[in-house]
Write a protein that binds this DNA or RNA. Structure first.
Lengths: 201, 201
DNA sequence: ATTCACCTACCGTCCGGTAGGTAGTCAGAT
DNA sequence: ATCTGACTACCTACCGGACGGTAGGTGAAT
C-alpha cells in the first residue's frame, strides 16, 4: 500500500483507527508484545509514529484492543456454533464448538492469533479488561464441558478443569503448526474431536 | 557478591557459565526473548553485563544454549520413560511418555519452560541447532505414535501428524496453567492419558 | 609472562512518549 | 459572502532511557 511516496501531501483514506488495529494485529501475531514497535505499526499504516497517539493513549491500549477483539471473535464464533447445534447430539456439539474455535483462530486471522501470542503484556499482568474477556470465553467452555460430561459424551471421572485446559491448549497450539493447505478447518475439527476420549464405561 | 570464590580443584568447566544459563533460563521462562535483557541476566548472576561476553559471544548464543538444554531435558526424560516401560502395555507406555514430558517440563523447571516460551528468536527463524534438537525430539513421538497406532492403542484412522501436534500442544500448553499444588505430575499425566481417545471400532 | 575472569566506560541505535505546530473542514455569527 | 474559532487528523522535532555490543584495563592465579 505505498499510496503516497510523496511527503507533505500524503493523505491516506479514513477509518484510521481500524486500520491501525489491523496492522497492529498482524505485527503482534508474529512478533509478540516486545518485538512489535509503534514505529513498525505507524510505518505499516503509512503515518508517523506520533500520530498514533491521536487515536490511542499508549502502546498498551493498542495491544489491549487487538487482544480483546481477538478473544471476542473466537467467543462469538463458538457461541454461534453452539446455538446452531442446540439439541443436537453431544459429540456433534463438541465438534461444532471445536470447529468454531479453529475457524475463528485461523480463518479470521490476525486478531485471534495475536491474542494468543500476546499472553502476558510487557510488564505486569494483563489489563483487567483482557482478563475479564478471557474469563468470559472460558465460561462458555466450562458450560459445554459440564453439559457433555452430564450427557455421557465426555468422561465424567475427569477433572473438568484439566479437560478444558487440555483441549484449549491443543486448539491454541495449532497456531504454531497448522497450515491451511494440508487440511481445511472442518477436517481438522473432525480429527480433533475424534481424538478426545468419549465417556469411559 | 563474590559469594563462593573458594577455588575447587582445577575445574575447567566453570561454575559461572552454568550459573549464567540458570538465571537466563529463569528470566527467559517468564519473559521471552525480547523482554529478557543482558543487564537483567548479569545482575541476577552478580556480574557486570560486559562480563557475559567473556563466556558467550552474543545474546542469541545464551538463549540458544538454554533452549537446546531445555529440549534435551525433555527428550531424555521421555526416552528414559519409554525405556523403562519397554514391552509394557501400549497405553501404559503412552502414559509413561506423557508423564516423562510433564515431569521434565514442570519438575525440571526453567530450561524446559523457557524452551517453549522462546519459540521464535528475536528476528529471523531459530538457529539451525535449535531446529535440529527440536526435530530430534519430535522423532521420538513420531515413533511412539506409530507404534501405538499399530498396536491398536490409538485410533489408526487419524493423521499421526495431527495426533502428535494435538498432544504436544496440550502438553506444552500446561505451562500456562499448571500449578503443582493442585495435582502432582503423575496424576496430571494419568488425566491427560485418559483424555486421549483409544482406537475406534 | 601469560591467561583467566572480571571490571569501567562508552558506542550508536532504537524504544515509548511528549510538545507544539499546521493544513483542511465546517458551524454559526457577522 | 466572509470571517472566526473549534475540531480533526495528521506532522516535525525532540526527550530520557534502555538496548546489545565493544574497547581496553586490572588484579589474581598459573
Amino acid at each position: 500500500m505505498s499510496v503516497a511516496t510523496d511527503k507533505g501531501a500524503a493523505q491516506v483514506e479514513g477509518g484510521s483507527r481500524r486500520q491501525i488495529l489491523d496492522h497492529a494485529a498482524r505485527l503482534l501475531r508474529n512478533g509478540g508484545y516486545h518485538q512489535t514497535t509503534l514505529r513498525e505499526i505507524a510505518e505499516a499504516v503509512g503515518i508517523r509514529k506520533a500520530s498514533l497517539y491521536y487515536h490511542f493513549a499508549s502502546k498498551e491500549e493498542i495491544v489491549e484492543a487487538v487482544v480483546n477483539d481477538g478473544v471476542r471473535f473466537v467467543h462469538e464464533g463458538v457461541v454461534a456454533a453452539l446455538a446452531a447445534t442446540e439439541g443436537a447430539a453431544p459429540r456433534v456439539r463438541l465438534e461444532a464448538a471445536i470447529r468454531g474455535h479453529l475457524a475463528a483462530l485461523h480463518g479470521h486471522g490476525d486478531y485471534t492469533s495475536a491474542s494468543i501470542k500476546v499472553f502476558n503484556f510487557g510488564a505486569a499482568p494483563a489489563p483487567q479488561s483482557v482478563r475479564a474477556v478471557r474469563r468470559a470465553y472460558e465460561e462458555v467452555w466450562r458450560g459445554l464441558i459440564a453439559e457433555l460430561q452430564l450427557a455421557g459424551a465426555l468422561p465424567a471421572e475427569r477433572s473438568p478443569d484439566v479437560l478444558r485446559n487440555f483441549l484449549l491448549g491443543a486448539l491454541n497450539g495449532s497456531t504454531d503448526w497448522y497450515r491451511p493447505e494440508r487440511f481445511d478447518i472442518a477436517t481438522l475439527a473432525r480429527e480433533f474431536a475424534a481424538l478426545i476420549s468419549p465417556a469411559e464405561g
